[in-house]
């Protein structure tokens, strides 16, 4: 469309003020109405930031008799209540732990999640170590990093264990943020 006027071509001076007001009003109103839908959408988009990390809950994971003193670590599923947006489920798998029975009825519980990028580690009996299948991080039986060049920033996450009624192994289950040197609950 060819129009003789251009943005900066001078309009008649009498209409100057009126035209300035028209332009200002058009920009202000146009800007305001255009902003409403994105703002509404942005709130929903940012909603996840409101959701706080959940505190770890104590869960019955195994009976003491399932573990032999000084034996190899064994993997157990952790069942707990889970909230997934609108769904609430009770007693469903939320993760897994390796349990190892040490001397004096002490139990060591390690979260199976590799602190590097969140894969599940395997226990390799032949080498007596934990190994992550994703990026080859390896950890000792106590969860410590074995290889100084390990991609994992911290040892495997140890979880608090309590023996109740002399036979029940309860673990305070918690996941931690991957890729951090410190244990930050998620």
């Amino acid at each position: 469309m060819d129009t003789p006027s251009a943005p900066d071509s001078a309009p008649p001076p009498a209409g100057d003020r009126r035209e300035f007001l028209t332009k200002a009003a058009a920009i202000a109103i146009g800007g305001a109405i255009t902003a409403v839908p994105p703002i509404a959408g942005l709130c929903v988009f940012l909603d996840p930031l409101r959701r706080e990390a959940s505190a770890g809950a104590s869960v019955l994971v195994a009976s003491l008799s399932a573990l032999t003193e000084g034996g190899e670590p064994r993997k157990f599923p952790v069942l707990a209540d889970k909230v997934d947006a609108w769904n609430r489920a009770t007693n469903v798998p939320v993760g897994a732990v390796y349990l190892q029975r040490l001397k004096d009825n002490k139990i060591r519980a390690l979260n199976v999640v590799c602190p590097h990028a969140g894969c599940f580690v395997d226990f390799r009996p032949a080498q007596n170590k934990y190994h992550c299948p994703c990026h080859d991080s390896s950890f000792g039986l106590d969860g410590a990093i074995l290889d100084p060049k390990s991609p994992s920033p911290r040892p495997l996450d140890e979880l608090p264990v309590e023996i109740r009624k002399g036979t029940e192994v309860w673990v305070t289950f918690q996941n931690f943020r991957a890729g951090e040197h410190k244990k930050i609950p998620v």
Partner: peptide, 11 residues
């Protein structure tokens, strides 16, 4: 449950 969700849906 979501922040401003009712408003977004309403618009």
């Amino acid at each position: 449950e979501m922040w401003g969700g009712w408003f977004l849906r309403g618009v």
